[in-house]
Nucleic acid binder design. Sequence first.
DNA 1: ATCGGTGGTCTCAAAAAGAGACCAGCGCTA
DNA 2: TAGCGCTGGTCTCTTTTTGAGACCACCGAT
Lengths: 136, 136
Amino acid sequence: MDSKIFNLKAKLEVYKAMTNGANFADCPVRDVIQGISGKWSSLLVMALAEKPYRFGELRRLVPDISQRMLTQTLHDLQRDGYVHREVFPTKPPSVEYSLTDLGRSMFLPLQQLVQWAELNHDAVRDARAAFDTAQG
Amino acid sequence: MDSKIFNLKAKLEVYKAMTNGANFADCPVRDVIQGISGKWSSLLVMALAEKPYRFGELRRLVPDISQRMLTQTLHDLQRDGYVHREVFPTKPPSVEYSLTDLGRSMFLPLQQLVQWAELNHDAVRDARAAFDTAQG
DNA sequence: ATCGGTGGTCTCAAAAAGAGACCAGCGCTA
DNA sequence: TAGCGCTGGTCTCTTTTTGAGACCACCGAT
């Protein structure tokens, strides 16, 4: 935090990778970020970071997700390598979802963002209220 | 809208995992996260972290955003206090967008995620390819 | 025999996003 | 002086994404 040089240096590297020279289109970083920036993706990763969950458990854990979007988001997370899906031959069959090593490694920076949100949600709420008041 | 994602039973455990032990009565984290996890939000914050940009510059920087979504996303980011909007009385009037202190402070953890994406986009790409091959 | 819990899929409606026309005002050029 | 383009938007229409909820087969317990 106290090192401006570190921040600047890191930023430059990031932009080199991000901007692909000229603009933000067709950049791999953006492709990855968008894969985890969906409405439910980060939420499910956060839940699975605690421990593996079964489909129905996740559904109860996140009550306002539709079954359809739960299926779809887990499928996308599995496709990108963040989540492992394992079917157990119980009767009826149960399905367990867990984070892969890649998923756990991604959760580390994601957690930083979550902690920022925790620390600054008051500022965001205040900004919203001020903006809405000013705009009418 | 109620920002409590998790039901009461699971709340304590999950929050413990999410926040390294800190607890809170309400759950604004999700509200804040969703405000910056839209398709274009993080991208625009990343762009503005470099330097302030005018509307048209942003539109050229992110060629595949529609003018409509650019307006709307910038408006939302301004409302949440991440972005400052300033109109200059040139002819025709020009509008400059820049990060606020809040926006810059949010960019620090966001940058961590971007750096992770930079380091791991190959792994994600490989996972996708493997998954698509396996599924046919 | 019926009920509930398993992890889904299917359909239809609603919401969100994309595409592109349009706008007023001014400077530049032909 | 008549057009043309650049400014930052908005408005409308179409397409994509999401939400709500019905349905499914299976089995064990009631």
